[in-house]
């Protein structure tokens, strides 16, 4: 008999990193469905295309790095990156936009740093920011809620055969920011823009965000993520928004509008929770996510961009190691936790 010789423990849970990633992908499905309902098939097409691009990029770069291709493709991390990035892109995105963003995210933001587990920045957000800076027009052309183009139109948008202009419309966040930056931000003006007044928040987007919230709650229930990052994120966004809105409800959007607009829920449950680039201790994650939330509110309210999930996440990715050093838990048998980098 050839006995196995290994160190303890001799049994482990049956799940693996690939399963973990797949769960996250499944959890995006409600959000994807609502995006499709509101904005047409563009997002679905882009998600599928992004997955293809991601797998090919990952395979090529793994091959170039001399790593086992099949083994690493099975961890689904590239697929998840592609899905998250594609979900963040406008549904009007042409194929080349997705291609550039996803391949950059996989090759540069992830693999050139050493692959899964080694990347200091969230790859999807690196890809997103690259596109936002390089192609600001293409990246801000959303479709007016409820005016979803047909599958053919979506395909034509994807292949670039159909000009975007005829279909595009502003998002609630865009509308709100434009009103204020043009100096027209008074009560009657705000009231006259229907897009700002959906059931709970911005029209259409409230459903998108609620769908991502649903997926996020599924992740928490499956213990794929803990509550710390989403709660910190949303609190960090909502609390300053609440204070500011109580002070000046015309100048500042209300907290409900904030957390149900743009990429708030996608960011809170799917982007900021990327464990590789986030802080790792429980209290560290709270702090990390809360700072992301605050930063989003600051940029949305005072910055040059209508939304700011990507920038905020990347900035806090930078701070994560530092946060980790100051948020070690108190170890059993110790009076107080260790702080900083030196004992």
């Amino acid at each position: 008999m050839a006995l196995i010789s290994s160190t303890s423990p001799h049994t482990t849970v049956s799940n693996n990193t690939g399963a973990f990633m797949r769960q996250v992908i499944y959890a995006t499905l409600p959000g994807l469905a609502v995006l499709t309902w509101q904005f047409g098939w563009g997002t679905v097409i882009n998600v599928l295309w992004a997955v293809v691009v991601a797998l090919v990029s990952e395979a090529l770069i793994l091959k170039a790095r001399g790593r086992p291709v099949a083994f690493y493709l099975k961890d689904y991390s590239a697929v998840l990156t592609a899905v998250l990035l594609a979900l963040a892109l406008p549904p009007t995105s042409p194929w080349w936009l997705t291609l550039i963003g996803v391949s950059f995210a996989i090759i540069v933001a992830k693999q050139l740093y050493g692959g899964l587990g080694m990347n200091p920045f969230n790859p999807a957000m690196v890809g997103y920011v690259l596109l936002l800076i390089s192609f600001p027009v293409a990246m801000t052309q959303w479709i007016a809620p409820g005016e979803a183009p047909s599958l053919v139109q979506s395909w034509q948008l994807f292949t670039g055969q159909l000009p975007v202009d005829g279909l595009s419309g502003a998002t609630p966040l865009d509308t709100f920011r434009t009103l204020h930056s043009s100096g027209a931000g008074n009560e009657s003006e705000l009231a006259s823009h229907g897009i700002l007044h959906g059931q709970f928040a911005g029209l259409g987007w409230e459903w998108v965000n609620l769908a991502f919230l649903l997926g996020g709650l599924y992740l928490i229930s499956r213990k794929i993520i803990t509550w710390h990052i989403p709660v910190g994120f949303l609190a960090g966004l909502a609390l300053p928004a609440l204070v500011a809105w109580l002070i000046d409800p015309v100048r500042f959007a209300d907290p409900m509008f904030q957390i149900l607009s743009g990429g708030a829920m996608l960011g809170a449950f799917f982007i900021a929770t990327d464990p590789v680039s986030a802080a790792t201790s429980r209290s560290g994650r709270l702090i990390y996510a809360a700072l992301i939330g605050v930063l989003i509110w600051v940029i949305r309210s005072f910055g040059g961009y209508p939304d700011a999930v990507a920038f905020s996440v990347l900035l806090l990715n930078l701070c994560a190691p530092f946060i980790d050093y100051y948020t070690q838990p108190r170890t059993y048998g110790h009076d107080k936790p260790n702080r900083g980098t030196q004992s």
Binding site: F20, D75, G117, T280
Partner: peptide, 8 residues
């Protein structure tokens, strides 16, 4: 596999 710092 690589550690993804999931924190489990």
């Amino acid at each position: 596999q690589p550690c993804i710092r999931c924190g489990s």
